[in-house]
Amino acid sequence: EVTIKANLIFANGSTQTAEFKGTFEKATSEAYAYADTSKKDNGEYTVDVADKGYTLNIKFAG
């Protein structure tokens, strides 16, 4: 089991951190699914992958 950390960075400057656990593939998939659901309210996003994929910096356009 691994933990994927997602740092969500919103257009207004606020941030949120979420953690997803499971296999690398499952946790990563859940992090992207979470970003997709947040996209409806926060606009399109880009992802900067860090820490060999264990940290995702997800920046929303607003």
Rank of each mutant, 00 (worst) to 15 (best):
T3L: 09
D51Q: 04
Y54C: 08
N12T: 07
S38K: 15
G22I: 01
V47R: 01
E30Q: 12
V47L: 06
F24A: 05
G43T: 04
T15K: 12
T46V: 12
N7H: 12
D51L: 03
E44S: 12
K39W: 06
V47I: 10
T17D: 05
F60G: 00
L8S: 01
Y54R: 07
T46L: 08
A61M: 14
K21H: 14
Y54T: 07
Y32M: 12
K5D: 02
S14Y: 13
T37G: 13
N42Q: 11
D48T: 14
D36I: 05
F24K: 08
F60I: 02
K21Q: 10
Y54I: 05
G43V: 04
T3H: 06
L56T: 01
V49K: 08
G62M: 07
S29I: 12
G13Y: 05
T28D: 01
G53T: 02
T46F: 09
E25D: 12
V2I: 11
K26R: 12
K21P: 03
G43F: 04
Y45Q: 00
T55D: 03
Q16C: 14
K39S: 14
S29F: 12
A27I: 03
F24Q: 05
A6W: 01
A31P: 00
K5S: 07
S38F: 15
T37Y: 14
K39F: 09
S29T: 11
G43D: 05
S38H: 15
T55Y: 04
T23F: 07
F20R: 00
T46E: 10
N12W: 06
G43Q: 05
K52S: 14
D48V: 13
A18Y: 14
I9L: 11
T37I: 14
E1V: 14
G62C: 09
A27S: 04
Y54N: 06
A11R: 09
I58A: 02
K21R: 14
E19S: 11
A61E: 13
K5V: 15
I9K: 07
N12E: 05
V47H: 02
G43K: 03
I58P: 00
A50G: 09
L56K: 00
Y54S: 05
N7C: 12
I9F: 14
S29N: 12
I4D: 00
A35T: 02
A6L: 15
G53C: 04
L56I: 11
L56Q: 01
K59D: 05
N42Y: 15
K40D: 10
G62E: 10
L8W: 03
E30D: 14
A33F: 09
A33H: 11
E25Y: 07
K5L: 10
G53I: 02
S14F: 13
I4W: 00
A6P: 00
K52L: 14
N42L: 08
K59H: 14
E1T: 11
A50D: 10
E19G: 04
A18E: 10
N12F: 05
A27G: 03
E19F: 15
F20H: 02
A50L: 14
A18M: 15
D36W: 04
T3R: 08
A11G: 09
T17M: 10
L8D: 00
A35D: 01
G53F: 02
A27N: 01
A33C: 09
E19N: 08
K40C: 12
S38N: 15
K5T: 15
G53V: 01
D41H: 13
I4V: 11
K59L: 12
E1H: 12
T46N: 07
A11H: 09
N57G: 03
A33M: 10
I58C: 03
E30G: 05
Y54E: 05
D48I: 13
V49T: 10
G43A: 05
A61F: 14
A61H: 14
V49S: 10
S29M: 14
A31W: 02
V47S: 04
G53R: 02
Y34G: 02
G22K: 00
N12Q: 05
L8N: 00
E30R: 08
N42G: 08
T17N: 07
G22L: 02
A31K: 00
D51V: 00
F60V: 02
E30N: 09
A33K: 12
K52D: 15
N12R: 04
L8C: 05
K59M: 13
N57D: 06
D36G: 05
D41G: 10
T55H: 04
A35Y: 02
F24L: 10
Y32I: 11
G43N: 04
E44L: 08
F24M: 10
A27L: 01
I58E: 01
D51W: 02
Y54F: 14
Y45M: 04
Y32P: 02
A61I: 14
K39Q: 08
F60S: 00
G22T: 01
E25M: 08
E30W: 06
I9Q: 08
A11C: 12
F60D: 02
T37P: 03
K52W: 12
V47T: 06
D36Q: 08
A50T: 13
E1M: 13
S14W: 12
T23D: 08
Y32E: 03
S29C: 15
K26I: 12
D51G: 04
F60R: 00
N7G: 01
A35K: 00
Y45V: 02
A27Q: 01
L56N: 02
I4A: 00
Y45C: 03
T3V: 13
A61D: 12
T37D: 14
A18S: 09
